[in-house]
């Protein structure tokens, strides 16, 4: 069973005044089949955690360890991590001019699966997955994320999640910027992947709204660069009622 283990992770970014520590010792274990919600106020370091796991060059790991089934993830390049089964649905997906969605998806699937998918079944697979996400087939011919609306970008991220079938899916605020219909459609996509039982999900969000559609097994409150509290789904209800205030204050004085 695939397991992602994060142990005492410290991460800093290069700021104007020198390195600034953003993650201050994160501990978390995500197993295949589990869904962990990470909730926290703006600027608490949620995206930093997501990007650091995916290997974004902007973030420097200054301490700790991350392993996937015992393999050292931090030693891997960005593409190696993806091929090892780590998937990051980004909060702000990047536009790639000149590269069509269909070419991108096929190149990516070829890299992840280790061989080019058979053309006929592949075309069908993409078409059906797009249909379920209510994406117009014309998106296949458009350039990656170019001119996509916020909601379309998020659907495109989930399309990739469904096609690439990772072991660990990190969803960074996939819910933000979505209207209720889009939120439901996107959540259904995530749930289809979860229902296979093959994926461990790290659902990063600011709001409890998405948790009505995607039921987490665990909820973690993220504040000031670390997990401040962990619990079951009931913790989300508490956050819904009380907000992050208690954690933020603690964060500032810490």
């Amino acid at each position: 069973m695939a397991t992602l283990e994060i142990h005492d992770l410290h991460v800093s970014v290069e700021a104007e005044a020198g390195p600034r520590e953003i993650l201050k010792g994160v501990d978390l274990t995500v197993k295949q089949g589990e869904t962990h919600a990470i909730m926290g106020p703006n600027g608490s370091g949620k995206s930093t955690l997501a990007y650091s796991l995916a290997g974004h060059p902007k973030y420097t790991i200054t301490g700790g360890a991350v392993t996937l089934d015992g393999e050292d993830v931090l030693e891997m390049s960005v593409d190696e991590r993806a091929r090892a089964g780590v998937f990051l649905a980004m909060q702000y997906p990047v536009e790639v001019p000149g590269v069509s969605v269909s070419n991108f998806l096929r190149t990516s699937a070829t890299a992840i699966r280790g061989e080019a998918p058979k053309l006929r079944t592949w075309v069908k697979e993409v078409k059906e997955t797009m249909q379920r996400l209510h994406m117009d087939p014309s998106f296949a011919e458009r350039n990656v994320n170019e001119g996509f609306s916020g909601g379309e970008k998020k659907r495109h991220e989930i399309l990739q999640l469904e096609l690439l079938k990772p072991k660990i899916a990190i969803l960074d605020e996939t819910d933000s910027g979505l209207d209720v219909d889009a939120l439901r459609i996107v959540s259904e996509g995530v749930n289809r992947v979860r229902e296979t039982g093959e994926v461990g999900t790290l659902l990063i969000t600011h709001y409890t709204r998405i948790l009505r559609y995607i039921k987490p097994d665990f909820v973690h409150v993220f504040a000031n660069g670390r997990i401040a509290e962990s619990g079951g789904p009931e913790l989300a209800d508490k956050l819904e009622a009380e907000g992050y205030e208690a954690y933020v204050k603690g964060g500032v004085s810490a």
Binding site: A54, A82, V96, V99, F104, V144
Partner: peptide, 21 residues
């Protein structure tokens, strides 16, 4: 980063973009 985060090796990612261009 975006292309590599989808498993595409660096040289292939560059090639994709330049070819598209």
């Amino acid at each position: 980063f975006y292309l590599m985060a989808r498993g595409i090796p660096e040289h292939e990612a560059r090639r994709l973009v330049v070819r598209g261009f």
